[in-house]
Amino acid sequence: MELTTIWFILIAVLWIGYFTLEGFDFGVGMLLPVLARDDTERRVMINTIGPVWDGNEVWLLVAGGATFAAFPEWYATLFSGFYLPLLLILVALIVRGVAFEYRAKRDDDQWRRRWDAAIIVGSLLPSVLWGVAFANILRGVPIDSDLEYVGGFFNLLNPYALLGGAMTLLLFLTHGALFIALKTDGEIRHRARALALPVGAAAAVAAVLFLGWTQLETGSVASAVAFAGAAAALLAGLAVATQGREGWAFLGTFVAIGLGVAGLFLALFPDVMPTTLTSGTSLTTTNAAATAYTLRIMTVVAVIFTPLVLAYQGWTYWVFRKRIAVHHIPAAVGAER
């Protein structure tokens, strides 16, 4: 197998890790005003992702860095053509991270409400825009013969891409609701499990429409198998959620998102960014790749450090595996005064 193909697969794996992990903490952030009835319940929800949300974002950093090093033409064209949506995602992630750290710095309801709004918006924007961005990568964008993006921002807001954004939004909401049901106890747990079912049904409809459209346009046999597996996992997860088996239900959405992203990369290969111009040139794993020497060095580094990172993150989830509830939350700083 060529190194360019190996690195395409590795980048796909990094994006699978990012969406399956960051997806549920985006969902938790968006559900703050829906599931929590007071500040203590909001703190319960935030604490479910408190030890892991920043580790989940490492997958995005590594995916971006790997793309820059392994496929510099892909990175350059993607970030120049998708500059505005990617900038919005970056700003949202920064504000969201600051909000997690600062909301408890002052015992003031208005202060906390403002940072909670930052968490909600900072979770909502990436949830939609990542779907829009990936849908456009699959659909193709105007790239000329010099491998440069020649479209505008509104080229990205097409029906297919907007459907992709709706799909990721609904999937992350479902994923987040099931994670909350898995990680909490008491009333929040019951509300989250009840909400996951109708939102999950809407996510299933959006996923079938988007993935079916993708399969008809650019799909392969391999992507069809992955999409079918994703649909089956999502439906199975929703089915066991009705029986109160939150662990299996969360595993169902986890596998559904993972297989869905895998199917998107299978549908894309060997392109990494197809063009919609008849006179243009699509970016592929061949013409967008770095030199063979660069890829060999990167492969050695990945073989050494990837298992270490996976082991550390797995240990983190194991340490913080227990449920939390309202009675575990101490009084807010200054609340006794």
Score class of each variant (00 low, 15 high):
A63V: 05
L32P: 07
L32W: 06
T48N: 08
M45W: 11
L31C: 08
W53S: 06
F68I: 01
E41Q: 15
L21G: 13
V52Q: 06
G23S: 04
E22L: 12
V28W: 12
V62S: 09
W59G: 08
A70D: 05
T67V: 10
G64S: 03
D54H: 14
S80P: 12
P72F: 00
A66V: 10
A70I: 05
F24Y: 15
V58Y: 13
S80A: 11
M30C: 12
R37I: 00
V34Q: 01
A69W: 05
L60K: 07
W59A: 03
Y83H: 12
L32K: 07
D39H: 13
L21H: 07
W59P: 13
P51S: 04
F82Q: 06
S80H: 12
W53K: 06
G27I: 03
L61H: 11
L31P: 07
D39W: 11
F79S: 00
R43Y: 10
F24D: 05
V58C: 09
L31N: 12
T40Y: 11
T48P: 11
F26K: 00
V52E: 03
E22M: 12
W74S: 08
F71K: 06
E57C: 05
L78C: 01
L31S: 14
V52A: 09
L21Q: 13
Y83P: 09
P72M: 00
P72Y: 01
T67M: 15
G81V: 10
P51M: 06
E41I: 03
G50Y: 11
A36F: 14
F71P: 08
T40C: 01
I49R: 04
I46R: 14
F68H: 03
N47Y: 12
D25M: 06
L32S: 04
F26M: 07
G55K: 01
V44E: 05
P33A: 04
E41V: 08
F79C: 00
F82N: 09
R37G: 15
I49A: 07
S80I: 03
L35E: 04
D39N: 14
F68R: 02
G55I: 01
R37N: 12
M30I: 14
Y75V: 03
F71I: 01
G23W: 02
Y83G: 02
W53I: 04
A76W: 06
Y83D: 02
N47M: 10
D25K: 11
N47E: 14
G23H: 02
E57W: 09
I49G: 05
T20R: 10
T40Q: 13
M45T: 07
T48M: 03
G55A: 09
V44D: 03
E73N: 15
G50L: 09
A76N: 08
M30N: 10
L21Y: 06
G29F: 13
L78K: 02
F68W: 13
D39S: 10
G81E: 09
E22R: 08
L35R: 11
G23V: 03
A69E: 04
I49L: 02
Y75N: 05
W53E: 01
M45R: 09
I46H: 04
F82A: 12
T67P: 03
F26L: 13
R43M: 11
A36H: 13
N56F: 04
F82C: 02
V34C: 00
G65W: 02
L60V: 08
G50A: 15
